[in-house]
Design a protein around this nucleic acid. Structure first.
Lengths: 325, 325
DNA sequence: CTTGTATATGAAATCGATTTCATAAAGGCG
DNA sequence: CGCCTTTATGAAATCGATTTCATATACAAG
């Protein structure tokens, strides 16, 4: 292992002190032209690169943030993460991505890890089962995305969310306007989003004077193990002609059932939009969330908070767009 | 900012030296039972968590690896990344994901960043435009995935790849067996994969005594700006009845064209498989790459290399699976 | 009672940077 | 020419851990 080139060797090479080398990098206006040249020659010659680790140690900033989401495999989160990464890179930040799989323990462990690594902040789609974030992160800035924070610390933190209720209302409303007579729903009761989406769904039914039957609504588990079963039950028992899916994973499972049982006639709506919806034989109605934008906004919010820790908490709600096919 | 609890404060609390506190964590067998208890009490009381930064500084290992890919938004890479992350988490490693967008400069910058952060290693789907990896990473272990390394250092590094040629051969072969009479191809000339996939495609044509016409093959740019145009040209000019797409992004763009021009009859094959292919009206033939497995294998290879820097270079080729619909 | 060996602990060096404080040289001014 | 202010630089402390080396105590063996 050819060992790493340190500031010491540059100092030696240039015949100056380490302090001077450091100044060449950070406050060159304090150093004479000739010395700067000597030092820079040394850096080039020895291919010096300052240790980010040592800098973090001294400066108490790692230029690293954590992103805690349920699963990068979910394209909504993928896009969101990409939004964060692009914004972060532009500002010289690195991103550590953590998948909780909706498991609160995993979330806890990842947050601890990020605290240990002294991340400068965390962007968090929380499972929502933590009472006291503040004691977990010890003053590290937190930005909540996708899901509202719960517990007593909830109001301490910045959020970037979408209007789940309105989006779902619009989707269910569109199904009915397309002539659906019995609209069922499958949602995932994850954090705050499930409830909000269900509320929107219910309100749309009510607005159209549709009765709300509890057997028309199925609650999925996040992992999607039983989605197919639930869907089949709704379809067969209730004879529904339209289905509202709480997220893209649920839709995928519903499509599987429809295909397997060769059910050709079903109006579908889903919260979240994906490009391939265009190519499916069913005309899928979707609620397009600006995932990438949520990512960049969350990152900017985090930066603002870092720059000004005492500024008032912000709550950003980004707009969804109904896509009718 | 309530400042961070350091080993010093635990030492003070327990009335011992910092060395002893450190030993409680790392070599408790050297410490007396009562002292351990005192120290542990202090840790609990003050909620001590060792600074990963300081540990990295001393131990010369960050327990962090870099993953450099073209784009997480590509579901192939998403899955791959998830495979890496799961394996890494299990071993206490964190992952920093970097998107190059096939831009060699970005790749260079990210690699530098990872070197600066003293990542323990890098898993790399390289754009392939770097002559000398070794001088870039300075003895940091590198595992190449998806694309073969090029340049003079190529044979220095472990690889985990798929058999592109065979996969493509099978896909084109299946198209022809399904009765295609004129098979065209669009591939992305990225790194080594484009050429290999094209080779497989050509061999399949030859095996069936089909002529190989160069106008039947279109080279896409990675960003997919002109894919639609190219596809339309192949379809209209060549009157092809089957199209082989070099990756899932290309397929997506082809589907757009087919939809827009209402072309109902087209046999499609694509390198890489996605769940939603099941729901598209065309019976898509696909080459399923075990992306998740590639991820875990790459991580394990990296760990092996770290454990034994001098062991011979390994070249792992994972199996693809032809999916016929 | 002395010597030798475990056992338990602490002081200090170290990792690679940054920053404060002190100092030396150079230049400006009356 | 002496005094004061810039300008340029270095020595040493610091960030928070780990590890080496030395030392002190306890206990066993002779």
């Amino acid at each position: 292992m050819s060992k790493q080139v340190t500031i010491k060797q540059i100092a030696q090479y240039a015949g100056v002190s380490e302090a001077t080398v450091s100044r060449v990098l950070n406050q060159p206006e304090l150093v004479s032209k000739q010395t700067i040249q000597k030092v820079k020659d040394g850096m080039d010659e020895l291919q010096y690169r300052p240790s980010a680790l040592a800098q973090s140690m001294r400066n108490h900033t790692t230029k690293t943030i954590g992103v805690v989401i349920s699963n990068v495999l979910n394209p909504f989160f993928t896009t969101l993460v990409r939004g964060i990464e692009d914004a972060a890179t532009k500002r010289g930040y690195s991103v550590i991505v953590c998948n909780t799989d909706e498991n609160p323990d995993k979330e806890q462990r990842y947050i601890n890890m990020l605290v240990d690594h002294q991340a400068d902040g965390i962007i968090l789609a929380s499972t929502g089962n933590h009472a006291n974030y503040h004691s977990m992160v010890n003053d590290m800035p937190l930005v909540f995305i996708d899901r509202m924070p719960q517990g007593k610390d909830a109001n301490l933190y910045d959020t970037v969310l979408v209007d789940n209720e309105k989006g779902s209302f619009n989707a269910a409303d569109a199904l009915i306007k397309q002539g659906a007579t019995r609209v069922n729903a499958i949602v995932s009761p994850v954090a705050t989003t499930g409830t909000e989406r269900l509320n929107g769904f219910r309100k749309a039914l009510t607005a159209h004077d549709f009765p709300i039957r509890e057997q028309d609504i199925a609650l999925d588990d996040y992992l999607g193990q039983h989605t197919a079963e639930l869907a089949l039950n709704l379809i067969q028992t209730n004879q529904c002609d339209a289905l509202f899916c709480g997220n893209n994973v649920i839709l995928m499972n519903v499509l599987k059932v429809l295909k397997e049982w060769q059910i050709g006639d079903m109006k579908l709506a889903v919260f979240d939009d994906q490009p391939w919806f265009d190519f499916v034989q069913y005309p899928i109605i979707s609620v397009d969330q600006p995932a990438y934008l949520i990512g960049t906004k969350a990152f900017i919010t985090l930066m603002d908070r870092l720059a000004n820790p005492d500024r008032p908490v912000t709550h950003d709600i980004v707009r969804t767009k109904l896509v009718i096919r």
